[in-house]
Simulated scan of single mutants.
Amino acid sequence: MSQNYEELLEVMHARKSVRKFDPHYTINKEEITSMLEEAISAPSSSNLQPWRFLVIQDRELKKKINRFSFNQEQIETASAIIAVIGDTEMYHNIDEIYLSNLAAGNIDEEHVQIQIQNAKAAYPNAPLEVRRNIATFDAGLVSMQLMLIAKARGYDTVPMGGFDKQQFAASFELESRYEPLVLIALGKAASPAYGSTRLPIDSITTYM
């Protein structure tokens, strides 16, 4: 096995869901931005990247979130809470994304126009529930990538779905197209995370 593979395994197994963070530890905006820039290399449906991020570091805002998030300790003690928000109208970005791909030399004019036409025929006409499912799936991909990147940089995380999404959207005055999907607490662990086990692979895998 290559050294890269060994290093990847080390990060994967080291990442645990931490719930006790050092409340005095801060991570600057520049480093958080750098981690997000790396995380968005994650794949997404038709490359429409239906993720948006709201980075919350203000102490009072974290307290506000916690009032409708079951008073989870990590929300107030983490260096930042990163809200991963799904764009259910991701089709508004079709031209910008695909023409950028053309400008980068990743595709030719003929094929980019086919991609644009196909995407514009499919996504605006898809039911909201379908687009919501796409955004949710893609948010999971970028969230996992962000948590691994954070661990590789020496930070700790925990993903949280246990919060009132309607209250969150109202509190931050999100447009109706944007739906909060997951909160990621980011910081330095104040105590180790609990270990956890997994089901045996034979019990969850079938080869055909």
Rank of each mutant, 00 (worst) to 15 (best):
D95P: 01
I94F: 05
I134Y: 02
I116K: 08
I184Y: 02
Y5D: 14
S79H: 09
D164V: 06
M208H: 15
S69A: 15
M12H: 07
A139R: 01
M160Q: 06
D164Q: 07
Q115Y: 13
P50N: 09
T136V: 08
A104F: 06
T33Q: 13
M147G: 09
N106P: 00
G161S: 13
I134H: 03
A83D: 03
A14N: 15
V112R: 09
S203E: 15
D202V: 14
D202E: 15
I149E: 04
P50C: 09
P159R: 12
W51E: 02
K62D: 07
A80D: 04
Q49G: 09
Y207H: 14
E175Y: 05
D164M: 03
A119E: 00
K64T: 15
P159C: 09
Q72P: 02
E129M: 06
Q113K: 15
I149W: 02
D202T: 15
D87M: 02
S143P: 01
Q72I: 00
A42F: 10
Y5H: 14
H111C: 07
T206K: 11
A119D: 00
R59P: 11
Q167K: 14
E76P: 01
V142S: 02
A139L: 00
G154L: 02
A78D: 01
S100M: 07
M208N: 12
L8D: 04
V55W: 03
E6P: 00
E7I: 06
K29C: 03
L102V: 11
E6N: 04
Q167T: 05
M160I: 09
E110S: 13
K120T: 04
R177T: 13
I116Y: 03
A39W: 00
K165F: 03
Y98N: 14
Y25P: 00
Q115G: 06
M1I: 03
I56G: 09
N93A: 15
G162N: 12
N125F: 14
Y194I: 05
F53S: 08
V84K: 08
E76F: 03
S176W: 00
F53C: 04
I56T: 06
S100E: 10
Y98D: 04
R52A: 08
I40W: 07
D164W: 03
T88I: 11
S196T: 15
E73T: 13
E179H: 13
L186S: 13
S171H: 06
E30V: 07
N47D: 11
M144D: 00
I32E: 06
T77N: 07
T136K: 11
Y123G: 10
I114F: 04
L186H: 14
L148Q: 06
A42Y: 10
